[in-house]
Nucleic acid binder design. Structure first.
Lengths: 185, 185
DNA sequence: CGACGACGGAACGGTTGCGTTCCGACGTAA
DNA sequence: TTACGTCGGAACGCAACCGTTCCGTCGTCG
């Protein structure tokens, strides 16, 4: 029987190593070292660096994403932004997510895992938000849910991950208001 | 005297290598191999992988960014989007830029170079667009240029680099219209 | 209590890249 | 023609990591 505390230590070490040096530079020796564990313990569980990361990302996907239903388009958008900002402000996540996204451009397996873990969930939430708003008469039926997601999450991602400047007071409110206006246009 | 054709071959090879394997995995041996050049020729010019990349990025920065002045906010936004989309659709650029952005989170020198080469230019353009629009009465004086840039470029970056789906017909028009509406809100 | 299996640790041979040092060939400028 | 400097190429010793194998130890089942 594999010891679960060792498994957990390895999983945690992978996250830390991923954040510290990135997928490309990450080594199994480094993971074992950080976890305070023998290399054998790692190889006994996973056959490669890739399967280790795929396993972690998939576990993340299983969590699912709560769909906001506040009763108004603005409320839903604002709630989605809140969740996204919360995730992207975690120092580990804000390092790991873009790193894996870049890697996924070169590795179809990572790409699939990321899509399933993050993007598909967000697409689904966006689709629900748009559907409800259309039912309420807040948006036209022709509104494209994917473009809605772009308009809602894009500015936040750009600021937090690309430009890497902070979130000023009231920024999420402004972006939410702007996104609603953009979708109505 | 260093031969210029050799220098150019190395520069080109760095770009290709950067796009193919990313900064983290890129090696000087690999660059020399790709350029069809001895390792010595590389070390005679640059002292490390980092200085090689910094040199290239800085050269890119020197180009500058044309500031649109179409006479309307929508026209300016649309023009800025056109330039950005053109850059991000180049397969090399769409691979290299996010890669260096991720790397810049770990390396202040890369971060500074990227800021100077890309972000500062875009911030300046956004500031000009906002200033003109305010003068025309299209926007309030209180409009924040940085947030404007987020709203304009964010959705495009999200779609082209993060989600990596294509640009549907008329997408740039819609985003431009949406961004203008968002800024007015 | 005895057998089993996972544990950390050390070592294996092999690969890759580092940064440096030589070499002989070539081209150019004095 | 001679002298110099760059060229590509090969080799250097060094370091890191690969994936595997073999230990002796320890905890847990049966």
């Amino acid at each position: 029987m594999l010891r679960e505390d060792v498994t957990d230590a390895i999983r945690a070490a992978v996250f830390e190593e991923l954040a510290a040096v990135g997928f490309a530079r990450m080594s199994i020796e480094g993971i074992a070292r950080r976890a305070g564990v023998g290399k054998t313990a790692v190889y006994r569980r996973w056959k490669s660096k890739l399967s280790l990361v795929l396993d972690l990302v998939s576990a993340f996907a299983a969590q699912g994403l709560p769909a906001p239903a506040t009763g108004s388009l603005y409320g839903d958008v604002r709630a989605l932004l809140e969740v996204a900002a919360h995730a992207l402000r975690h120092p580990v996540a804000s390092q790991v997510i873009p790193d894996l996204l870049v890697e996924s451009a070169r590795n179809p397996e990572i790409s699939d895992a990321i899509k399933a873990a993050l993007l598909d969930g967000q697409r689904g939430v966006a689709a629900l938000i748009v559907r409800d708003a259309v039912a309420r008469g807040e948006l036209l039926e022709s509104t494209d849910a994917d473009r809605a997601l772009d308009v809602i999450v894009g500015p936040l991602y750009w600021r937090l991950v690309v430009v890497r400047s902070g979130l000023p007071e009231g920024y999420l409110d402004e972006v939410a208001r702007g996104a609603v206006a953009a979708l109505r246009a």
